[in-house]
Every structure is written in C-alpha cells, then in structure tokens.
C-alpha cells in the first residue's frame, strides 16, 4: 500500500463542496438573469432572481466561515506564495502544465502537509479567494441593497459600475471553476485529487 497523508480536514472539504454547489447554482441563475431572452432555455427570471438572492447570501455566509476558519486554523498560510524564487517556481509549474505533463514527467512540486498548493496554485487561489470573491460578494450585496450604491455616475445609474464589477468577477470565477475542475484531473491518477477532496487523504 502506498504512503498517504491526511491533507484536508473535514471543515475544508465541507466548505469546498458547499462553495462548489453554491457557485454552480449562482452561475446557472446568474447567466439566466444577465442573458435573459425568451428564445433561450434559461431558468425562469423571477425564480432565478429568488434563487440567486438566497444562494448569494449563503455564499456570503460560506465565505465568512472560510475566512474565519482560515485565520483560526492557520490555513491562510497555504495561500501565501513564499519567496524567494516565486517566479521561478511559477514558471517551472507552468512549463509542466504545457509540456512536462504530456511527457509523463512527475509533478515538479509534490504535495506535502506544509505545502499543499504549488506556488502558481497559491497565487491564483489567493487572487480568486481574497480578491475576486470579496469583490463579487460585496457587489452582490450592493445589488441586493441598492440604496448603498451611488445614485448616479457618469450620467448613468450608479448601480452600473457595481453591476459590471459583479459580472466581471463572476465571469472570472466561472473561468477559474472550469480550469479548476479540469486541473483536478492532473493528480497521480485522473481521479486521485477528486478522491482527496472527498476523503481528505492524499495518496503519494
């Protein structure tokens, strides 16, 4: 039997799958609202609006839990790229994705309990979780309580910059999600990392 490490505690896994489910629901309903068109097979508008509001608030709660638990457990440290050599390590990782992976080369930075994420991964996760997500949630909350939006801006409704920022950060997270789901298959076997995300155990 191969060596294995208990990498992901229950709280991270529960949060991850809650987050995943909510983001999928918010993507489907968000697309139905933004691209509303009688000719497209989308979720009915008022239903999509209600689901989006509820799932959005649930995501705010899930994020608050994530941010707090990260502080309490010290897990936030995983998201910090550690110098020196950050750029070199990112380039090495990127080279593996575009070249090494096709040649069957081993992972340049094997997973350890101390370094769960490779440097490129920690940089992108940081940008998504600590930059895009807060912006997405904040703009979503203003959307929900538009009285906090500026009244008017550049001769347009003041909600416009809030809406555009919500749209852009939402799109960034959808693109991240697509790549994230796919890159989950790049473990030692195609299913290895998905399994880790369910059981918490990483097989070396």
């Amino acid at each position: 039997m191969s060596e294995r490490t208990y990498l992901l505690p229950l709280w991270i896994r529960l949060w991850h799958w809650t987050n995943a489910l909510l983001i999928i629901v918010l993507t489907v309903t968000g697309v139905s609202l933004h691209f509303a068109d009688p000719k497209l097979p989308l979720v009915e508008f008022s239903l999509a609006a209600r689901i989006h509001d509820i799932a959005g608030l649930a995501l705010v709660a899930a994020y608050a839990f994530f941010a707090l638990a990260n502080i309490v457990t010290g897990n936030w440290w995983q998201y910090v790229p550690k110098p020196p050599g950050v750029i070199d390590r990112c380039l090495k990782q990127a080279r593996w994705y575009v070249w090494g992976i096709f040649r069957g080369e081993p992972h340049p930075f094997p997973v350890t309990l101390q370094n769960n994420f490779n440097t490129l991964q920690s940089l992108i996760y940081w940008a998504i979780m600590y930059l895009a997500m807060p912006l997405l949630l904040l703009t979503g909350l203003i959307f929900l309580f538009p009285e906090f939006a500026p009244d008017r801006l550049f001769g347009m409704d003041g909600l416009l910059p809030v809406a555009v920022l919500h749209y852009l950060t939402g799109a960034a997270i959808v693109m991240f999600m697509i790549a994230h789901i796919y890159l989950g298959s790049t473990g030692n076997t195609v299913g290895a990392m998905y399994k880790t995300m369910i059981t918490g155990w990483h097989e070396h």
Partner: peptide
C-alpha cells in the same frame, strides 16, 4: 451611450437583461 444597449434606460435604471 458607452456601447450599452438601451442606454436611455440605463441613464436612469440598471435593468438586468435589458
């Protein structure tokens, strides 16, 4: 205005979908 469809509506209200 600024490339938006229905910008006359947008000058007053952001209407999702419109």
């Amino acid at each position: 205005k600024y490339g938006f469809t229905n910008s006359v509506i947008l000058s007053n209200s952001y209407v999702i979908g419109a």
